[in-house]
Amino acid sequence: MRIEELREEEFVCGSFACAGCGAILAVRLALKVLGPETVVVTTPSCLLGVTTFYPQLAFKVPCVNVPFPATAAAVSGLVAGLRRKGRENVRVLGIAGDGGTVDIGLQALSGALERGDRFIFLCYDNEAYMNTGGQRSGSTPLGASTATTPVGRGAKGEDRPKKDMLRIVAAHNIPYAASASIGYPADYIRKLEKAVKAGGPAYIQVLTPCPPGWGYRSDLTVHLARLAVQAGQWALAEYEEGAWRVKEVSNPRPVREYWALQKRFAHLLQESGGEG
């Protein structure tokens, strides 16, 4: 893919997302691939708050807001309703954050994946409940300090490993599932294109760093999304027709370089004396 080939038109603009928001960049790029014949279904999250709160409505495509657990169920309803109305040309894109996907949205997503409807589900993963102030979710990585896994005497941040959502999704034997990072836009866009062409449910979980939630300067969003992959903290994986592929990291970096740029991991560096 060459950058010039991406649609020039913007389908989300003027949102109230924080400066340097990784999630809004992920959604912006996704809509460039999916195009104007798309309906977004989204759920209480940063995205809903910053794009669909009157009087600042930032989408140029239709957007249906639904309760927190319901994204994928409403997606199924839209797919069925549009088909019944002879408007299958409208693509249905469910978008939820990590909490709305791996925690409260999991049951409805599992149902929709298993029913085999044709839709794309985009999980923008900023690794905690950022919209409510940064509480841990099932997608928070081991060791991260969050509002509900604070660091203190005898507490070293999140004490459970990140939920392996991609394998849970793939276990539904859907045509396409992938993880991506906004630090690797060509890879992300290629995966979105595959998702569009999939004959059934397609799932993409994209890493979207969050400046206030992770504690870093807003210009580092893309850099961190890239470094996460280089430091082995995020895999660019793909599940297609029953086979897995993982992108090889071309220039691996030490994990401490990734940790050092974010407040949520600061205690790990102090502990290891900066040796990482």
Binding site: G14, A17, A19, G20, R28, V222, H223
Partner: peptide, 30 residues
Amino acid sequence: LFCPEGSIRRENGSVSIDLDYCKGCGICAR
């Protein structure tokens, strides 16, 4: 490509910045 706000305009192989919705995150410069 990387501007979260879509505030960079592209035309005839060059770019310009639309400041109306640019929040100054600095990703473009970095």
